[in-house]
Design a protein around this nucleic acid. Sequence first.
DNA 1: CAGTCGATGTACT
DNA 2: GTACATCGACTGG
Length: 188
Amino acid sequence: MQPELSKSSVEVAQRLLGSWLVRELEGQVLVGKIVETEAYDRTDAASHSFKGKTPRTDVLFGPPGRAYVYFTYGMHYCMNVVTGKQGQGSAVLIRALEPLEGIGAMRTRRQRISKDAQLLNGPAKLCQAFGINRQLNGHDLQKSPLQVVLQPSLPTENIVQTTRVGITRDTHRLWRFYVQGSPFISRP
DNA sequence: CAGTCGATGTACT
DNA sequence: GTACATCGACTGG
């Protein structure tokens, strides 16, 4: 498997920047470059794993390199990469992608969007564009039809570290990371 | 621009 | 009941 994903979520969150998310969907190939991530773990009150293993969070406590997909606000999906060793309950939320390939197919699922920069610049937006839903919860991300393809690590000086978005607990942790200067992030 | 707010299903108190 | 790792439409300046 991919040993790089068995490290802590804070390490993996930075490691994943610049890597690709590749989706095969209805005969098309969609590729996005990961430009924004957030780390979550068991010690963190903002994490779904904080209260322990439940039917919903089962995948979070499984092996690294799987997709944890959850449904929220009655209409949106968000996707994480499970990290750490089996049973740790840590994961990295994918918050934004830069579209690289299959932009036409992405637009089919994001009808109202005209600008490329708004296609994948949010965790629920990228799931909509990539057709990611609960069927992919627990999916091994080394396999089709949804893969993480690691690319060389970005230099630290190109990574911005800041507070996470949209949470109400443990808000002080600097566990959000994004590619400096990217126009494809969800917010500055 | 910025700020507010409704939509809408599910997990958990 | 309440909260929710969100989005997009709408308002007012």
